[in-house]
Write a protein that binds this DNA or RNA. Structure first.
Length: 590
RNA sequence: GGAGCCGUAGUGUAGCGGUUUAACAUGUCGGCCUGUCACGCCGAAGAUCGCGGGUUCGAAUCCCGUCGGCUCCGCCA
């Protein structure tokens, strides 16, 4: 910059700045060379403004401007002026003014970038990730970076106002059983021993409650070594919260207020409180998902009772074996082609359904390969149950309950997408409550915690833990938005005996429990207050607020689906020295 | 671990029912141009068709493998 000081952001200039001498700095967005007159769009974080190089104003600046190229870094001194009559650009925030350059300094040159720095340009994502610093220069990505900043700022302001303390917890911690695969960090000072990166600060925040903190939060990186998805990265950020002396409703209430505050302050959007609540069971039966997209209806209906004695063996036998027959109504799609039906069948298949039965409602009749197996009364009952109207297509899955639910849940989403039912800018928040405490893992032959091992069962369900543990419900809650799980939490166990019983149910021996979680059990013996909390996925929250479809867009430096960083090339090999210091030897891979 | 889609000048695409000088747009470079703003006009350069193998007289095109990206299932307390 030499002896120049920047006076304004490019995007700030307006008519009222006319006549002002300004110094701008930024990147050459575009240059339009008319031979005797050169226009340059100068871009910085604040936006863009047109700079005019006119030899009558400055021969020297004009000559220098002839050498400018895209993404060169420059600083310009000149006077802001109102554009001549008829040359204003209504597409530009600064379009009524321009800057008449008196002097120009070239701060740095740039190679021709691999893609143009502008919004809505379809560029291969791998290329964007490799040149992320150029990708992040695009106004849309800058918007998302700022959106994320505004969001975390609003979160901190709100929670500070409610008496929460932001407290950091260790990144180098201990590997624990249960949950996701850990990222491990070898210990140089302790041969053969490893730290684990935290999957969440769960245990530390509970210990903080025992420590008398009462209200804690943290915007914290978490690590899980599992396969990636559009909304899952190996490292991601949670808004983690915990409170003492609270009931489930207190945590849910403050979470709603927090979200309402954040959406109000950051997006200017007012949320309707309280959020609707669905039990886990309702969500699964009506929507086939524990995170249903509630922007549209298309509810799943159960017709098991109507078809259990029907002549269609596939349906009757499934019901006879304890399964269910459920269906979904696809409005106005009775004319779906064979090909479209095959696609839907294939989709249902990926969720484990063995087939997909269909009926096309045509006037008073039904066209379907299976229509002949049903009595007319049965067909009539099915039509009524499905609330079918002429022109509708009915899709049915007959299977075990969980398979039928998830297959139809996937079909419901696909149909919602195809019929454009979910793009109305609505924000369909909801709570899912009354999750089961435990589920049975067939592969491992033991119970697993649905939420996590520290989640308290409902008080009235404590006796069930000895008799029928699968019937116990958890004091857990998930908050969902437009079909995305935004976060989840629970009231925690705060008594040693209950926690030990829970570990026992999960198949953890007393020794294992002491070795892995002894500090927590011990802490519970020193006056642990009842407590509970929640963790929200910050990346998902910002993704939804920003109207994006992947959290990669709101993470500055995300990993690819195969968990690599295309910019740095991580992960990479290390030297033999490093391995030796860490007491590690590599096994030749097959 | 599994399924699907994609990979062609810098970028985005076409070509893929076998034989083309591998096309179009944009960008880049050079020339002209004093009111453009996705400036315009003229000209030029730019592609081992991701990589390897196979089939064939002949492969960007068909087959197999492999690498990379994306979406999904499993997995993700």
């Amino acid at each position: 910059m030499g002896d120049w000081s920047r006076t304004h952001g490019c995007g700030e200039l307006r008519k009222e700045h006319a006549g002002l001498e300004v110094v701008l700095a930024g990147w050459v967005h575009r240059r339009r060379d008319h031979g005797g007159l050169i226009f340059m769009d100068l871009r910085d974080r604040s936006g863009m403004v047109q700079v005019v190089f006119n030899p009558e104003v400055s021969e020297q600046a004009f000559t220098k401007a002839e050498a400018l190229r895209g993404e060169y870094v420059v600083t310009v001194a000149g006077e802001v002026g109102i554009r001549p009559e008829g040359t204003a650009n209504p597409n530009l925030a600064t379009g009524e003014v321009e800057v008449y350059a008196r002097d120009l300094r070239l701060l740095n040159v740039a190679k021709v970038p691999p893609f143009y720095i502008a919004n809505n340009l379809e560029v291969d994502e791998a290329l964007r990730l490799r040149y992320r610093y150029l990708d992040l220069r695009r106004p849309e990505m800058q918007r998302l970076l700022e959106l994320r900043h505004r969001t975390t700022k609003a979160i901190r302001d709100f929670l500070d106002g409610r008496g929460f303390w932001e407290i950091e917890t260790p990144m180098l911690t201990k590997s624990t059983p249960e949950g996701a695969r850990d990222f491990l960090v070898p210990s140089r000072l302790h041969p053969g021993e490893f730290f684990a990166l935290p999957q969440s600060p769960q245990l530390f925040k509970q210990v903080l409650m025992v420590a008398g903190v009462e209200r804690y939060f943290q915007i914290v990186r978490c690590f899980r070594d599992e396969d990636l998805r559009a909304d899952r990265q190996p490292e991601f950020t949670q808004l983690d919260m915990e409170m003492s002396f609270v009931r489930r409703e207190d945590v849910m209430g403050i979470t709603e207020e927090l979200l309402a505050y954040v959406f109000g302050r950051v997006l200017g959007v007012k949320l309707d409180l309280p959020f609707p609540r669905l039990t886990y069971r309702e969500a699964m039966t009506r929507y086939g998902s524990d995170k249903p997209d509630l922007r549209f209806g298309l509810e799943i209906k159960d017709i098991s009772d109507l078809v259990k004695n029907s002549g269609f063996r596939v349906f009757a036998e499934v019901v006879g074996r304890g399964g269910v027959v459920r269906g979904i109504r696809v409005p106005g799609c009775s004319t779906y082609s064979r090909r479209e039906l095959d696609e839907l069948t294939q989709l249902a298949g990926t969720f484990g359904a063995k087939g997909l039965a269909w009926m096309a409602v045509e006037g008073e009749g039904i066209r379907s390969p299976i229509v002949k197996f049903f009595a007319s009364g049965e067909l009539q009952s099915i039509r009524e149950r499905m609330e079918a109207r002429p022109g509708d297509l009915l899709l049915f899955v007959a299977d075990q309950e969980d398979t039928a639910a998830s297959a139809l849940g996937a079909l419901r989403l696909e149909i919602g997408r195809r019929l454009g039912l979910m793009d109305d800018g609505r924000l369909a928040f909801a709570w899912i409550v009354d999750f089961p405490l435990l589920e049975y893992d067939q592969e491992e032959g033991r119970y697993k915690a649905v939420h996590h091992p520290f989640t308290s069962p409902r008080e009235e369900d404590l006796p069930l833990l000895d008799r029928e543990p699968l019937k116990a419900k958890a004091l857990a809650y998930d908050v969902i938005l437009n079909g995305v799980e935004l976060g989840g939490g629970s009231i925690r166990i705060h008594r040693r005996d209950v926690q030990e019983k829970m570990f026992g149910l999960l198949g953890l021996s007393a020794e294992e429990a002491r070795e892995k979680f002894g500090f927590l059990l011990e802490a519970f013996e020193y006056g642990a207050p009842p407590h509970g909390g929640i963790a929200l996925g910050l990346d998902r929250l910002v993704m939804l607020m920003g109207g994006r479809e992947t959290i990669r867009d709101v993470i500055p430096f995300p990993k690819t689906q195969s968990a690599t960083c295309l910019m740095t090339g991580a992960p990479g090999p290390v030297t033999a020295e490093q391995l030796k210091e860490l007491h590690l030897a590599l096994r030749p891979s097959k």
